[in-house]
Write a protein that binds this DNA or RNA. Structure first.
Lengths: 237, 237
DNA sequence: CTTAAAGGATGATATTGATCATAGATTTTG
DNA sequence: CAAAATCTATGATCAATATCATCCTTTAAG
């Protein structure tokens, strides 16, 4: 169930400092603080559905959100995972379009909802903020270009190895000789990131485990051999 | 060879009206006109290479430009084709990054080059223009999401059928019962759009031809049965 | 606490599509 | 105009991976 907790003022919000809201004037921070809603979400809840109209922007304070498209065969293609400090749903809002994706909670999350008017107002008044957004969009486009190229030109094994390394970068907790990916994803969700069938992920993960590239700790994956995975993920290595 | 022709002033440029430059003030148009370079490019020439630093933005007046990434296996993944009115290379410029793609001429083109400073100045001074750019970026992101999803979830046959339909939309010349795709692409380039091997494209195209979905007119493809292709391109049809 | 549902694992099988090889057709170039 | 280069075409083969089926394990729900 969604729980509206007492609003933490944006001025005091820690995750803000990692977000595009960093650098806003006090005035704009206050108008955000006033207008926003701070809401706790449980795993599985839905932030928005593909095809519906954006009413505002979500700003992730904690937890993880998956943003995906549902393909015509019913499978989910995960476009990205959003965590602390990330904005969700702003492209559709700014692009004045319906949501091109669906967003659901993967790990219990606390998320601020900033209404459309407030967000657009800040954006139009703070040129620097607008510029940061534009830049972020450009970076995102670059990332998507790489994803598309990888999707068509790399094998599933390579893409899975890459995916693990990237998850390690974003959610990794480093140990002595290993890195635990500190997020629980089902095999189906990993398949949704890689863009493959669930069974294939299961098989390849056991192969990686047999080859001592990774191991399982409960529901989490531990990377044992980063270089090995990197070698696998590249075409020539 | 690149030929610098007499600059057509932006005020009088027809293709401008289809571009994001539409709606600029006379003052900004003039500063563009003064700073830009109008250059004729021949097929095969290169606008920029992946990994190099953007020095400005290209605005296509006529002709066709392909924008692609080179995968680690050496194959080209075409990200998009740009034609009259399209901007090329602005994401890397705005994102303050090196080019993420390479751009080359597919059909003889006339292209304006607007230097970085001029472009950024206009962008910072004209909020509306900035907003249009931001919106275009959002749309582009939406397009890339669809492309990624299709790349992982659709078959090559489906993607090729889709590609033909989209090329028809962008470059089609309608006849009585058919639509000629009025652009010359090699099978290798089509493969680069679809994200597959050249041989596969050749085989599938002959299959489509045998099934009377398309025919060849010289080096161009004519769509005979749009609905048939649409049915093929969808998962359930 | 028992049952149902979801997730994970594994085998068998089929198919798609990549790769390699070769050859003809067309275009470009010296 | 001849030679080289590029493009198209087609066959043969093979590997990767999707799909289907089944079973076991874990988690969630009544």
């Amino acid at each position: 169930m969604t729980v509206k907790t007492k609003n933490v003022p944006c001025e005091l919000c820690l995750s803000r400092k990692f977000s595009m809201f960093a650098g806003l004037s006090d005035e704009h921070l206050c108008s955000l603080s006033d207008a926003k809603n701070f809401i706790s979400h449980k795993k599985g809840q839905i932030l928005y559905y593909e095809g519906t109209k954006p009413l505002g922007v979500f700003c992730v304070n904690s937890g993880v959100v998956k943003i995906f498209k549902t393909a015509s065969n019913g499978k989910e293609q995960i476009i990205r995972l959003a965590q602390k400090g990330d904005f969700v749903g702003y492209t559709s809002l700014i692009g004045e379009d319906v949501y091109s994706t669906t967003a659901t909670i993967v790990e219990d999350a606390q998320i601020c909802f900033v209404p459309k008017e407030t967000f657009l107002k800040v954006m139009s008044e703070d040129v620097e903020f607008h510029r940061r957004i534009t830049q972020a969009l450009c970076k995102d486009l670059g990332v998507m270009e790489v994803k598309l190229t990888d999707a068509t030109q790399k094998t599933i094994r390579e893409r899975l190895a890459m995916t693990l390394l990237k998850l390690g970068d974003s959610y990794g907790v480093d140990g002595a000789e290993s890195q635990r990916i500190n997020i629980v994803l089902t095999r189906e969700e990993i398949a949704g990131i890689v863009g493959t069938a669930t069974e294939t992920v299961i098989r390849l993960l056991s192969e990686f485990k047999k080859d001592e590239l990774i191991e399982f700790q409960g529901k989490k994956i531990v990377i044992l051999d980063k270089k090995g995975l990197a070698r696998l993920s590249d075409f020539y290595g």
